[in-house]
Design a protein around this nucleic acid. Structure first.
Lengths: 175, 175
DNA sequence: TAAGATTGAGGTCTCAATCTTG
DNA sequence: CAAGATTGAGACCTCAATCTTA
């Protein structure tokens, strides 16, 4: 009932709350993501790219015909459509992608990878893959890495069910 | 030797490069992080916080004396010292932390959690913990979760060796 | 009316420069 | 001179509004 003891009591309760294992788990995931991207960002920026630049380029590069709708790009990357407009603006100014009107829907535009874009990606990738290997995959046994990736897929399928936006449309044109 | 066949050949080579399993692994980690934070952000913002706001508050709350140096806050969160200055500016304006001159080093300032800050954190946490559980920890068996967290710790210790900046100073004052 | 894309306004972060203290 | 913190300038992203097309 004394003020100090009430404060101590409140602090003890809060400590339990602030140290909850779920919070620790989430914090670990965030720290690993942040630490890993911090290691890889210098590789990207030494080639003149930001993380979002690379994300957009690699997703376009892996899409059928090396092209992807602006909207699908937004869904896949998690950026807003406005953000995608500006990223593609910069990449187009740099000559790494170009916009191409969509034949079937005149509202849509495709971001198309140029030869220059493919070249810049190819020039960057060996160094980036080496970085991923040194700071991530090589630190685990093949079995542990496999189990880790399996869990990541479970989580991704839950939190991002539409991760493949723009791909299934090509696989199954339906109409 | 015909132009078209050279193009196809170059594309086939690039496909292998663009689909490298290391890239897929890193992409999975990024997608899970992005998807999970996208699920939790609405919880934070409904309480008036950004991800960085919460990160700063929870780190201060878990530190001895509920206070942490600006520089250590920057190291722990991965933000620049400039960024920390501005986050703490906003939190101080909102009355959730306050700056306190450091007794032993007049260059330093401590960010101290206020009672109001602790209260706002405590009010937010149940909902946040529930979100983490629903979108992350409850999706895995205890064994799988354990193995997953073990791997995350391995990766964190590699990419962020100084993750506990500001804590060991208190643990071992040395001088 | 809804969907796709873009634009303007506003917020947050980083980099470089600056000031103070060790 | 180095470390800690802050400030101004610039880059990037989001939200809301707008325009065009389905």
């Amino acid at each position: 009932m004394f003020p100090l003891s009430r404060i101590s009591y409140a602090f003890a309760m809060a400590d339990d709350l602030f140290d909850d294992p779920r919070l620790t788990a989430m914090g670990l995931l965030i720290e690993v993501h942040g630490g890993l991207t911090a290691r890889l960002d210098p590789v990207l920026s030494s080639h003149g790219f930001s993380g979002n630049d690379f994300d957009v380029l690699i997703r376009v590069a892996r899409s059928p015909g090396r092209q992807l709708r602006m909207t699908d790009l937004a869904t896949q990357t998690g950026l807003s459509t406005s953000g995608i407009t500006r990223v593609v603006d910069r990449l187009e100014t740099s000559g790494l992608v170009c916009r191409q009107a969509c034949a079937h829907d005149r509202r849509s535009f495709m971001a198309v990878l140029t030869d220059a874009g493919a070249g810049r990606l190819a020039a960057l990738l060996p160094e980036l893959l080496d970085g991923i290997e040194r700071h991530f995959t090589s630190l685990l046994t093949p079995e542990r890495l496999d189990a880790f990736l399996t869990v990541l897929r479970v989580l991704r399928d839950h939190v991002r069910p539409g991760a493949a936006a723009g791909a299934e449309r090509v696989q199954a044109p339906a109409s």
